[in-house]
Structure formats: C-alpha cells, structure tokens
C-alpha cells in the first residue's frame, strides 16, 4: 500500500513537472535556448491564481484568466529578452534568462511581499476514495493528474489537427524550410511562448492549491528541476519530457523515503540526472 501511495504522490509531482517542462522543451526545440526564466511565469501563474480566486471566488475563472494573461506575458518575455539576441552565442541567452529569472523573484518580493499569499478559502481540498480501495487522493491532486493529461492531449491535437499546429511542427523540424513554405516563423514563436507560459501558469495555480501557499521563490526549485528534466528527456522531445518528468517525480518520492538520510530531495533528482547523462549524453530519447 505504501508503494502505491508513493507511486501516486510521485506521479502527481511528475504531472506538475510535466506542465512546467513542456514549455521549456517547446522553447528549446524552437530556439535552442535554455529558458530558465520560464519558472518566473510559473510563479506569476501561482500569484495570479491565488489573487484572482480570492477576488472572484471562482477557481475556474481564475485559472482561465491566469493562463491567458501569463501566456501573453510569456510572449512579451520572448519579444524583450530573446528576440534581440537570437544570433549571439548560446551562453548569452542562457545568462540573460537566468538574470531575468533572478530579477523576477526580487520583483515578486517587492510587489507581493516576502511572506507569500494563500487562498482565503482553499478550493479542492476534499479527499476522494480512489476506486473504493481505501486509497485517498486530494481533489487538487486529481486535478493535477487530469490537467496534465488534458494538456498532453490538447497539445497533440493542436499539433496534428490544426493549421497553426502543423506550421509549428514544421518550424521546429526545419525553420528555414518552413519559412520558405511561407510559414511565418515569428508567429509560430509567439504561439510557442504563449502555450508554454500558459501551461506553466496552470502548474503554478495547481502548486498553490497543493501547498495553499505562493511565495517569491516558489519557482527556483521547479525551474532547475525542469531544466534537468528536458535535458534528461533528450532536449526537444515531448515524449522524453513526459517520461523524464514522471520518472523524476516517482524517483524523488521513493528516494526521499529510502535515501533521505543520505541526500535531500533535490540532490536525489540531480544525482539521477548526472547518472543518466553519463550513460546517455544525449538524454533518454534524444538523438545522438
């Protein structure tokens, strides 16, 4: 029973990682930028979610508005931070991104205060008896699992069934070829940042539900973990990202119980990362 509980806890954590890492993978696939500042959008999502839920009383409304607003902020980040330096060496964008991320934490601290915010009346805190088995799951945790699934199905449909989605895949595969077919790559990039940022915002709202707390630094650890995940999965591979996210969630969940005296949770995640990379330098599903 303990194993099953640990597994489910791991999958919930893995779902959060997936939602965050998807945006990173999309950006890397398109622009070869390690978009560390992505986690700033995750934190923004958490704050907006709590503030809007408290203001309107509706989690659903707050979620939708938060995703839209954060998605647009994400497009702004691309325009201001990355577009001007796309043709510079790769470390330039990486450092700019880290700088933007650290600055964002400070800005959140100045605007929202250092101690964080909570829901006035935290929604979805009820527990569900899973399949009548005596296994209990919080509603919020179920939301994470369902939300992750929905995001993956939605992305799949978007990229296979819609014109803009097909243009997007074409651009990821071969930007020059896509441009020569008349695809407006600039629009595709904006779409990319919109979707990735909106998903990160959803993850932010969900983490706020799970912990009933948002704080300026809530993005740090997920940010570094998400970087580890997209590298683990084989950068640019959505399937690899999913596998790596879930694997990392589960490994952390078991590792904290069995290796907790030796390493803390983050160290377990990064030890796993280093071991996998030494074995497969291109990541789990990456091409050599």
């Amino acid at each position: 029973m303990l194993y099953l509980e640990l597994l489910i806890q791991g999958l919930v954590q893995g779902g959060i990682y997936t939602l965050i890492a998807l945006g990173l993978t999309l950006v890397y696939g398109l622009l070869r930028i390690l978009h560390v500042a992505h986690a700033a959008l995750f934190t923004l999502g958490g704050y907006l979610g709590v503030i809007l839920t408290n203001a309107t009383g509706s989690l659903a409304l707050a979620m939708v508005v938060t995703m839209l607003v954060t998605g647009m902020v994400g497009m702004g980040v691309y325009r201001v931070a990355y577009q001007p330096i796309l043709d510079k060496p790769p470390y330039v964008a990486l450092i700019a991104s880290i700088a933007l991320f650290i600055a964002s934490e400070e800005i959140y601290r100045l605007i929202f205060g250092p101690y964080g915010l909570s829901y006035d009346a935290p929604p979805l805190q009820g527990v569900i008896d899973l399949l009548g088995s005596g296994m209990y799951l919080k509603q919020a945790e179920l939301l994470v699992l369902l939300g992750t699934g929905a995001a993956l199905v939605g992305l799949h449909l978007l990229s296979t069934r819609t014109r803009i989605g097909i243009a997007w895949r074409a651009t990821v595969t071969d930007p020059e070829m896509a441009a020569s077919f008349g695809i407006r790559t600039q629009r595709v990039r904006y779409l990319n940042f919109f979707i990735g940022s909106a998903l990160a915002a959803a993850a932010g709202v969900m983490v706020a539900l799970l912990n009933n707390l948002v704080e300026p630094t809530m993005g740090s650890v997920p940010s570094y973990k998400a970087l580890a995940i997209i590298v683990l999965g084989g950068i640019g591979s959505i399937r690899g990202t999913l596998i790596a996210s879930l694997a990392l969630g589960v490994i952390e969940s078991f590792g904290t119980i069995y290796l907790g005296s030796l390493l803390d949770r983050d160290a377990i995640a990064f030890a796993f990362l280093i071991l996998v990379l030494m074995w497969r330098p291109q990541g789990l599903l990456g091409r050599a």
């Binding site: 070869r32 390690l34 790769p90 470390y91 990486l94 570094y224 970087l227 580890a228 590298v231 950068i235 030796l262 390493l263 803390d264 949770r265 983050d266 160290a267 377990i268 995640a269 990064f270 030890a271 990362l273 280093i274 990379l277 330098p281």
Partner: peptide
C-alpha cells in the same frame, strides 16, 4: 554546451544536498 551547463548545475545541487 547546454548539457554541461545543466550537469554542472546538478553537481552544485548535489554538493549542497550531501
């Protein structure tokens, strides 16, 4: 390159964790 950046970051966290 990028992979090395992330790997060295990982070593940093591993050091702290230990």
């Amino acid at each position: 390159h990028d992979f090395l950046a992330i790997t060295t970051m990982g070593f940093g966290f591993l050091f702290l964790g230990v």
